[in-house]
């Protein structure tokens, strides 16, 4: 079976001369959640918009489930659902009508039972006869999702799904994404909240300046690039790091009250148990012990800075 989405040598230069994308290659497998990370203006929305057909491209080819988005427009487009970043609704339409409209637009025969199911999933069923202009921001965003799901797409794009959304709605959104994935949907989301990618994605792509800097399995990425830190809060301050601890790369902080050990999370022998053992041999007592793992955010900042 062909990849659900395949992008080759995609480039986009706007009329202003701005190069939004340069030779982007990407292949998305069925059923995965792919997070596209990048700072504002990196090209995330341009990439999504080109795939969905709302922006023209300058070079490259795109296929959706093996269907070229130009030559087999209908077959390709029908499989795609798009939730754009900005809320845009026909404000005079009711929730139910606007969702039905979307389904029809994408060439599907009416299916009231399915529409009801989506609206119930999104807690919109009670609001079905309310005009969209009367809904709260969070509700409007749910309507946008309902519209994107209305034609039973196989590939769903969520462009900054939780930008400016409160904590509860964000949780709901994440739960929904997981539920959709369980049903076999492929999801591509863009975000600049690293937390979001870390929480949900199977694979992560980092884009900056229109170039896809890396695409990797999220866990592998974290393992490969992640650093861990062990922080010990000592009972009595140390004037200097004892010689017997020289084999570990240690830093003394907070007037000698804190001992910090950085190590590679990927290494087979982290050296941590041995360090703790040596400390007790030396009679250095500690009150507290804390380990932390670098987040995708650290990795991301690192990458983007390196590329700049």
């Amino acid at each position: 079976m062909p990849a659900i989405l395949s992008i080759e040598a995609l480039g986009k230069q706007y009329k202003s001369g701005h190069k939004a994308l340069e030779s982007v290659d990407l292949s998305i497998e069925r059923g995965e959640i792919f997070a596209l990370l990048g700072p504002n203006g990196a090209g995330k929305t341009t990439l999504i918009s080109i795939i969905c057909g709302t922006v023209t491209r300058s070079t490259g080819t795109i296929t959706v489930a093996g269907h070229d988005i130009d030559h087999a427009r209908r077959e390709a487009r029908q499989r795609i659902g798009l939730v754009p970043q900005e809320i845009a609704l026909d404000m005079f339409s009711t929730v139910l009508n606007t969702v039905r409209f979307s389904r029809g637009l994408f060439g599907k025969a009416p299916d009231p039972a399915y529409i009801e199911e989506i609206l119930r999933d999104l807690s919109l069923w009670d609001k079905r006869n309310v005009r969209t202009m009367e809904l709260s921001g969070g509700m409007k965003r749910r309507v946008m999702i309902a519209k994107a799901l209305s034609h039973e797409p196989e590939l769903l794009f969520l462009d900054e799904p939780t930008a400016g959304v409160d904590v509860n709605l964000r949780r709901d959104m994440w739960a929904l994404v997981r539920k959709l994935r369980e049903r076999g949907m492929t999801i591509i989301l863009t975000t600049h909240y690293i937390e979001e990618a870390e929480e949900m994605a199977d694979r992560v792509g980092v884009i900056n300046g229109g170039r896809l800097l890396l695409v990797e399995d999220k866990d592998a990425l974290m393992r490969k690039m992640g650093k861990r830190q062990l922080t010990l809060t000592l009972q009595a301050p140390l004037a200097a790091i004892p010689e017997q601890l020289a084999e570990w790369s240690l830093v003394l902080a907070e007037d000698g009250l804190r001992l910090i050990y950085s190590f590679d999370a990927q290494a087979e022998d982290t050296g941590m148990p041995a360090l703790l053992h040596r400390l007790s041999e030396l009679g250095i007592a500690y009150r507290d012990l804390d380990t932390s793992r670098s987040t995708l955010e650290d990795i991301f900042v690192n990458l983007v800075e390196k590329a700049a």
């Binding site: 709302t54 209908r74 487009r77 029908q78 798009l82 845009a88 979307s102 060439g107």
Partner: peptide, 8 residues
């Protein structure tokens, strides 16, 4: 308009 443009 995005919806009209992205529709098949």
């Amino acid at each position: 308009m995005f919806e009209i443009l992205s529709a098949p």
